[in-house]
Design a protein around this nucleic acid. Sequence first.
DNA 1: AGGCCATGTGACCAGGCTGTTACCGCAGGC
DNA 2: GCCTGCGGTAACAGCCTGGTCACATGGCCT
Lengths: 286, 286
Amino acid sequence: MTTSYAPEGQRRTGAGGQAPIRLAVLDSDTGFLQVLGKRLENAGWQHRVLASPVPLDAMVSMRLNAVVVDLAILGPQAWTYLEKLCERLPHLGVVVCTGQSSVAQRVRGLRLGADDWVTKPCHPEELIARVEAVVRRRKRAEARVDDTPVSVGEVEIRADQFQAFVHGVSADLTRREFELIQLLADAEGQVLPREAIYQRVWGYAMVHGDRSVDVFVRKLRQKLERVSPDWRYIHTHFGIGYRFAAEPVAEEAVPAGEPVAAPAPVAPPAPEPVADEPLAVPAGRS
Amino acid sequence: MTTSYAPEGQRRTGAGGQAPIRLAVLDSDTGFLQVLGKRLENAGWQHRVLASPVPLDAMVSMRLNAVVVDLAILGPQAWTYLEKLCERLPHLGVVVCTGQSSVAQRVRGLRLGADDWVTKPCHPEELIARVEAVVRRRKRAEARVDDTPVSVGEVEIRADQFQAFVHGVSADLTRREFELIQLLADAEGQVLPREAIYQRVWGYAMVHGDRSVDVFVRKLRQKLERVSPDWRYIHTHFGIGYRFAAEPVAEEAVPAGEPVAAPAPVAPPAPEPVADEPLAVPAGRS
DNA sequence: AGGCCATGTGACCAGGCTGTTACCGCAGGC
DNA sequence: GCCTGCGGTAACAGCCTGGTCACATGGCCT
């Protein structure tokens, strides 16, 4: 039983990448599986091959987007299994991919809840396109709350609000500013070149000399500092671009500590307004 | 051009009564059409035959569930037309039913947004089953008609009445206005982009520059203010769209006699009745 | 040390976005 | 056929945002 699931890591939706499709293939035709598997790899889909019918409960726990099934491996229970599957997992895209069949059989399969029926032999690319079509349709209709808030330091980025918050207080970002922070926060810890930032936020290539990114970084820093004065989030990398990471404001007076990222968002000490000489205390200047 | 449309009655919500599928067939193969038409009659579907490509706007106004299209009659614009169609009417089920084709063509069609691709000659029953599968997919996700009244602030939205009320007083919303407030209230607290609102209330993609959403928001605001003057419900998010949330009017300059509650912004799910005379509808300007 | 270039910062203005009103076509009811 | 009310478009006004400019600051290289 081969598996190629990636950890359910930080995968959000929006400006960057679509979450990959999670697909299960119920089939035992090794040649077919091999060719198909290769294409699925290329497409970046997470897929799993199952050589025999799997209990429905197991299917549920796989959290699939779609399944490709050859009725042949289901044995005499094929129709029943198909029906239960569609009934139990209404969100699942079901594509039957099986050998020769009659019109009546195909109609029956579709009526039971299958979304598509492909006759073998078939071209893997077409099969993939059909699965894609099924999933696309399903997602479009769903289009629901797939917005999981992302938190970095004190800042919480809520895609459903198009806004960033600190302790529930809005940072009052404009649309562009939000797109920028979203991009940066999604790549937390990575240094993003200016050109890449521009490309993904503005949508087209940056012309040499354009300072828009810098200006918006400044606006963002300003607004973030207003709501979260004891942390620095956007760090400049000279000649390259910017990196997003929550780092407490610390002057060089704390030599024992860790210079970089404090993963545990420890509540910083009370913001002590600095008089004139920033030496010992984290400055909470404004 | 044969037509068998029934009046656009209020057939939605109907407990039990399944609305018939509205289908358009773009084809000119008379034999095929005849056989298919007969089966569609039997199935009780509303269908219309179009022998040549129809402007997209016309398609929009037909309020279809699905369309069966033979690429052959679209001429050289076939791919473009298909793409635009899928783009403009994302909820429309699109089944290509055409003659011999290559894998590459089928993949292209599916990638452009088609939901299924059937090769002629085909059995009409299978075609119908496939259209059904496509439409089923769409409706399943959409079929979330909960008639449970939703309350936000002073406003109660009753799906079974297609109306919103405040202290039992109707806001006198029109159908569109109701659909808008229902959508907004269902997503209470979330910021909904204009495009998404248009998509879900009007049923097709918004063209750039369309101000319908704005105008209807204004009409809604006006009617809501008439029946619930001390609350603001629809909040604009510049460059994005709107958010529905009950927030008390923060009056500060006119302390005549109504000390409005603290400016505490959020009053999320607390249907706190406001202290003033219900029943008496303030005379609004007309 | 000095110069050059990259970046930070504040101000500013045109264009775009939204609120608002008026108007028109159409469909349904009488 | 007339009338009313609804949906949708156009037009205008005002405000906000985005992006540029000019200048200040600071790092890197010779």
